[in-house]
Design a protein around this nucleic acid. Structure first.
Lengths: 237, 237
DNA sequence: CACACTACTTGAACACGTTCAACTTCGAGG
DNA sequence: CCTCGAAGTTGAACGTGTTCAAGTAGTGTG
């Protein structure tokens, strides 16, 4: 919302030494693009329209962004920061795992809500494994790490006592679950996406219970089995 | 493989009374398209190339298929049938839940393996909620039902004793899990997608154990909670 | 100050998916 | 056999994302 520093500003992204004017043009194009996406939707916004509205030539947009899809990365970065901000109060106030997780998830949906209609449209870009927009891609790595960091804070800042091995893995698992929630949300056509809200409210207690049970002696073998599976699946790429 | 009847043949699909020649052209175009997809990949295959190779005009392809993406539906239908066939021996031989499930999942990967390189390319089409190719779309409903039916057979044909409520839901849940496996597979760049194989081999015993535990008196409340969540999330659209 | 080098900018041109008005073919009804 | 309407077919034309050879402008260097 306010002039937060987005990852798009990161000078390390491009090899070229940016001059002041260039950076200004870049921001102008990104700003204009995101505004038009919001106003008309992603598909309906043409590169020509973006260029015209920004007062530059089409080719200029391609000097700063490899493709139309790359413009979305800016959107991601922004929302990522907004999620972090929206989660702050919850992380400060709540001490138990369940309400912390629940609050963070709802905050994430809150932040994304205004974009639901066209989030679906360009969601498909993110689905292509080779796309830089994929949440698993190398190019999304900073945003992904930032997102996982939120869930690490959810876990570490909570009073919940849990298996140390699980504690190490849990943030990433929760992030993966969050991706699942987003997937569900994108498909959710119920008014105000209330089914997604219900999913969160229903799933959080289950996760909480499951995590608590992880310390039980009897369930140790099962936990070990799950962790071993994760480890085995992660190996080699 | 052999001249199986695909869902694309369904005369109920279009309002127009198909004449013999039309059906022939339709098949020719679909055949040519799938061949070129296999040979060159989806993106690299242009509609012009398909038309030229099939010896028809571009517009003719659009007379039979609403869009390039719609050609993929034919691919889905075929693979769906192939999965069914490949799963048959397993369903006939194995009697316990775990090996049945494991066999069916591996059979599914086997069937899709030759297409891994370009499955990823058009996978993104399926990700868009509004796309007819989405596994959740109304247009995919027949293929989806057929797929769920396989998992129903996995459950019903097994010796596993399980909670009746769960039994009702399990096929759909397993299908959902299968979609997850496919998602993982699409992203899996390991040689021969062996990580996906490991995921299957590791996850099946866990699922099997979890399902067995569902009959335990102590876990009844938890099971009820899960089923209630599913029911609650399913409601209203 | 002139030179050169590089960041930056341009818009015509390209290939693509898709549309559509016009045309051809075919079969049924008279 | 003729006629008419629907099924089937055509390819030029449109709008799109993207490329690129050509230009412009600013900055450090001799």
């Amino acid at each position: 919302m306010t002039g937060v520093t987005t990852a798009a500003d990161d000078p390390a992204e491009s090899g070229k030494p940016r001059r002041a004017r260039g950076e200004q043009t870049r921001q102008l194009i990104l700003e204009t693009a995101l505004r038009l996406f919001r106003e008309r939707g992603y598909t309906e916004t043409t590169m020509r329209a973006i260029a015209k509205e920004a007062g530059v030539a089409v080719g200029n947009a391609y000097y700063y962004f490899d493709s139309k899809e790359h413009l979305i990365q800016g959107f991601y970065d922004r929302n990522q920061v907004a999620h972090r901000v929206a989660a702050e109060p919850v992380l400060a106030d709540e001490k138990e795992l369940a309400p912390r997780l629940r609050g963070v998830l709802h905050a994430g949906i809150d932040v994304n809500e205004p974009y639901h209609s066209f989030a679906a449209t360009f969601f498909k870009s993110a689905a292509e494994p080779s796309s830089p927009l994929s949440p698993f891609s190398r190019e999304s790595s900073p945003a992904r790490e930032a997102a996982i960091a939120i869930f690490r804070e959810v876990v570490d800042g909570s009073t919940a006592k849990l298996d140390p091995e699980l504690r190490k893995e849990l943030p990433e698992l929760l992030w993966l679950g969050w991706m699942g929630v987003i997937l569900f949300w994108v498909y959710d056509k119920s008014p105000g996406q209330r089914r997604t809200r219900r999913l969160i409210d229903g799933a959080v207690p289950l996760i909480d219970r499951l995590v608590s049970l992880s310390r039980l002696r009897v369930l140790r073998p099962a936990l070990r089995q799950v962790l071993a599976l994760i480890e085995s699946v992660r190996r080699d790429d």
